[in-house]
């Protein structure tokens, strides 16, 4: 953790203009609001998410973390009563623009869910699901993709001899890594993770955390977590959400060692109501 911080110069406030010079931005969120019917779940969100780093989203239950992360790949629109205003720019393009196809966005922005949700198919079929729907049919290429993705998700050694067995035979932790592998199979640019370890035991959690560290070399990762130690362990940037607002967003080290907002301090020290 320390070394990463040293390399990348500690930046105090998230001033977008300044930051762009240091690292590329994958997401830039501008004045984003979201309502479920009449209830506002996200209020005036505004910050930038860097490329090839781990950005953690923390905050108490119901503060809008899942809503926010699902807005990033527009999955939130599956709830019919959702209304939104403001912009979310992915790689410089507004994802809500009419001609922006959600399928294209989601091909580039993968997602791992809270509960492992493999398909009731074989391990192999789970991994090749993405490539197949995107038109890759060549068996040799698919085989390669499976091996590469499972290796990428640190699952290859455990399952290479049983690729044709049903994914439901795997343990919870293995299932979650399979979901990550499934996500890697289409080589996304960004991976969204919504509390990916909350349904896992400590050892599986550790494996996934290590994996996240590995993955950020190639992918930009945005991870929602309830667990502040986890955020501190694995993330470069942290955003603290409270009641639908971003209270504080800064480098993880700074947010945890020297929070600038009283509410953040209360939350990370566990003094929060």
């Amino acid at each position: 953790m320390k070394t990463i911080m040293d390399e990348k110069k500690v930046v105090k406030a998230p001033r977008p203009e300044e930051k762009k010079k240091e690292v590329n931005t994958v997401y830039s969120i501008e004045n984003f609001n979201l309502w479920y019917g009449k209830d506002q779940a996200l209020k005036d969100i505004k910050f930038d998410i860097p490329e090839k780093q781990v950005t953690a989203i923390i905050g108490p239950s119901g503060c809008g973390k899942s809503t926010f992360i699902k807005a990033l790949n527009r999955m939130v629109e599956m709830v019919p009563i959702v209304r939104m205003s403001g912009d979310i720019n992915y790689r410089g393009k507004n994802i809500f623009e009419n001609k922006y196809k959600v399928e294209d966005l989601r091909t580039k922005v993968g997602m791992v869910f809270q509960k492992p949700n493999p398909f009731p198919k074989s391990i192999y079929e789970n991994v090749v699901y993405g490539p197949k729907i995107h038109g890759i049919k060549n068996k040799k290429i698919l085989d390669e993709i499976v091996e590469k993705s499972l290796k990428g998700a640190a699952l290859w050694e455990e399952v290479k001899d049983r690729l044709n067995e049903n994914a439901y035979g795997l343990s919870g932790g293995q299932q979650q890594r399979l979901c990550i592998a499934r996500c890697l199979a289409i080589e996304p640019d960004v991976i969204l993770m919504d509390e990916p370890t909350s349904a896992l035991d400590p050892i599986s959690t550790l494996k996934v955390e290590e994996l996240v560290q590995e993955l950020k070399k190639e992918f930009s990762i945005i991870i929602v977590t309830h667990n502040m130690q986890q955020a501190a362990r694995i993330s470069d940037k942290t955003a603290f959400f409270l009641n639908g607002e971003v209270v504080e967003y800064s480098d993880t080290n700074q947010l945890f060692s020297n929070p600038s907002d009283k509410r953040t301090e209360d939350y990370i020290t566990g003094r929060f109501g």
């Binding site: 294209d104 490539p131 995107h134 038109g135 890759i136 290429i141 993709i145 289409i186 080589e187 190639e218």
Partner: peptide
Amino acid sequence: QGSIRQMIKDKK
């Protein structure tokens, strides 16, 4: 790295 991405883009 990136080749699958490219392949998908072509197919798309």
